[in-house]
Design a protein around this nucleic acid. Structure first.
Ligand SMILES: [Zn+2]
Ligand SMILES: [Zn+2]
Ligand SMILES: [Zn+2]
Ligand SMILES: [Zn+2]
Lengths: 166, 166
DNA sequence: AGAGTTTTGTTATGGTATAACAATTAAAAC
DNA sequence: GTTTTAATTGTTATACCATAACAAAACTCT
């Protein structure tokens, strides 16, 4: 596992702080500009481990005085996606901060359909199997969308105790 | 591999014919009604191995005299999805016929980003790894979105010969 | 035929994303 | 440090994806 976002009792301020620091470093190294709106978008996405929709993000930015037209948010998202600082969760049309942006990778996600928290998981072995699978069909793999939907541990226990008391 | 949709030289009429026959059988068995618009939607989706967008499908249906409001097509799509006769490709917001609708499964896809053909591949071993991975996080898996993007064999050779001649 | 159920028609609206071009701001060149 | 150039942001408009809500029609079962 790459990043423990157990969602219940972790120091989430630390998540944000680390992510922002990494973003700074990466952008500086690569001569990319982490402008105000881009930085703030990243912070807002990192406010939780729930993926954030583009228009939700746009609303938050607008509240803070940023321009409120869609291109504002989609440009920021494009930048952050290209920089590897966030991922798009395709099955939710929403965006999630990446906790290990320093390593090039595609996000592999566990999505809880109860609490909507999403955690990213490590995948080297699955990645290898997928490349092989694809190669068997003569297919040259470039990118992956791996999204697993289900119940996270804490929602399972919540459901269990609710069931017991009912 | 479950279904060879090599896209270049296979008998695609056979694909459609088989898919429609399977659809008939399944619907009859389960007391589901494959109405005109549902059947025609399925045929139109099966016209190629490229996923079809809801509004593309709607336009085709409208040309043929079906009602042209969005609910028409989304209802047909819902029916076909629930019946397991088609899959949704999340990363494309588009719909694809399933060639083995008789077995309950989630679609695992290889998507060519050159020609946009999509083929479904078998996944039992990957599926098992994913369940295990999820379980390691205390996660109970319910559903999966697995979409691999890259270059199919024929687009690779096309690119290779183009490169050689240039 | 009548009652109940499923399917379809219709209108309206909400949510996601991009095109195109102008204005501004930051960086690079001189 | 002013000019030139490139990157970013502002603005308007539009395209594409999907669902809510309620009315009408068609089918099923008795
Ligand atoms: Zn956190
Ligand atoms: Zn990541
Ligand atoms: Zn075919
Ligand atoms: Zn399938």
């Amino acid at each position: 596992m790459i990043h423990d976002n157990s969602q219940s009792h972790h120091n989430h301020n630390q998540c944000i702080k680390t992510a922002l620091a990494t973003a700074e470093t990466l952008c500086t190294e690569q001569g990319q500009r982490l402008t105000k709106v881009r930085r703030r978008a990243l912070e807002l996405i990192w406010e939780s481990h729930r993926p954030l929709g583009a228009y939700q993000l746009l609303a938050k930015l607008a509240e803070e005085g940023f321009n409120s037209a869609p291109p504002t948010v989609y440009r920021a998202l494009d930048f952050l996606l290209n920089a590897g600082l966030i991922h798009k969760v395709e099955s939710m049309n929403a965006y999630l901060g990446c906790a290990h942006a320093d390593k090039a990778h595609k996000g592999y996600f566990l999505i809880c359909d109860q609490c909507h928290n999403v955690m990213e998981f490590d995948y080297q072995d699955i990645h290898a199997s997928l490349i092989e699978k694809a190669a068997q069909q003569g297919f040259e793999l470039r990118s992956e969308t791996i999204e697993l939907i289900g119940l996270c541990a804490s929602c399972q226990s919540a459901a269990a105790s609710a069931g017991a008391s009912a």
